[in-house]
Nucleic acid binder design. Sequence first.
DNA 1: ATTCCTTATTTTGTATACAAAATATACTAT
DNA 2: ATAGTATATTTTGTATACAAAATAAGGAAT
Lengths: 224, 224
Amino acid sequence: MELSSPFPLETVAIEKQTLHDQVANRIRDLIIEGHLAPGTRIDETTLVEQLGVSRTPFREALRTLAAEGLVIIRPSKGSVVRKLTAQDVFSMLELLSHLEKLAGQLVCERASDADIEGLLELHEDMLKRYREGDRLPYYKLNQEFHSRVSELAGNESLREVQANIQARLKRIRFLGNSKPDYWASAVAEHEQMAAALRKRDGDALGRVMAQHLMNTWDRVKDNL
Amino acid sequence: MELSSPFPLETVAIEKQTLHDQVANRIRDLIIEGHLAPGTRIDETTLVEQLGVSRTPFREALRTLAAEGLVIIRPSKGSVVRKLTAQDVFSMLELLSHLEKLAGQLVCERASDADIEGLLELHEDMLKRYREGDRLPYYKLNQEFHSRVSELAGNESLREVQANIQARLKRIRFLGNSKPDYWASAVAEHEQMAAALRKRDGDALGRVMAQHLMNTWDRVKDNL
DNA sequence: ATTCCTTATTTTGTATACAAAATATACTAT
DNA sequence: ATAGTATATTTTGTATACAAAATAAGGAAT
């Protein structure tokens, strides 16, 4: 018999998905993809029916989403999809810009050459999508790029927080790319990021990423 | 009949605490105050009995705490109080140092004179506690000081994230003040913060606060 | 009609009951 | 004894049932 893996099994095994996890993921997607619009009341009875689960896992899932800030639970009065005010969005983008600035600096210090290479490939993919006008794939690659930078910064807490804020902003950011000239300037900023990455110039990368996010605010603020 | 208050009632009314909220708060305190030690398995049956609630609100509370990062839920295998590795703590302190740096900068730009004054009073209280050797009150005022700075930075997202990380680190940080010389240097750093606050020198304040947290790491790392 | 109050209906909150999974125990074979 | 397997027990996950609160509907008085 072969020698078994040096890692204990549980770290390798695919994590079992409990029902409430699945439900949380499902509702999260519904919110992020806009099928449950901000401000919408979350009707337990119908949603539970549509998902084919009982209220128990459903309500547990709601608590998770509430802690993530996607949903507001008003005691005895039902839950609603959190509606972001302009101020909410600004505060998130301001914070995110500082977080990604930090991530940009750290990634240049800490990531391996291969990882940087991977980021640059991602960037090339984005460019291709841009040139071909494929908005949705571009958008997804863009999310992936920002997530990956945070991940490769080598600070798990930073990664978590970035992921959470990015999730909350997903819909908003999509709007920001909806006008062509906005898209063009976003792409130009990403070019600068790539250049800084190639030089592993953390300060430059951080600066561009921060700027990128404050520009996102400018692109987005009038839609709120 | 009198004219009613100009504010709608719900904004004034005390928020109704549902059972799962109370339970979440209760368990959170138990964890933070060390009555539920890191790594401890959370036994639903006994805990539910002690709290005198049924499993439903208890489990909902657990999901909240899990999302906050205080508890780990292992599907079908029970929950445990999250145990922080040295790396976890480092990543939190590194992130927190950047967050509070930002908070320090912003508070100098955005807070009112009265608010700054309030912070300085808090600082004086801390000094008094230090001189009298009252460790626990000092500790609480210290937490309050850092929270207040984040609050007065005028960015709600920043405040939330700071509060979350501070909560996770509460126990750890207490350790950091346990040795007298550590305490002394922490107080010295706070003196610098106060000086910067008086001058509304955001850069200086940010620098000291960031440094303060990286020093916390040095004070704490050997106890992990 | 409009306002107020009363009574239904729906919706939410919590407890309990049942099912499924994991863990512990006891037994058998070697 | 020990390893392995089968069975019992505990623990977790989910569904349902009941209670309490909020909302909606209906009707009486102005």
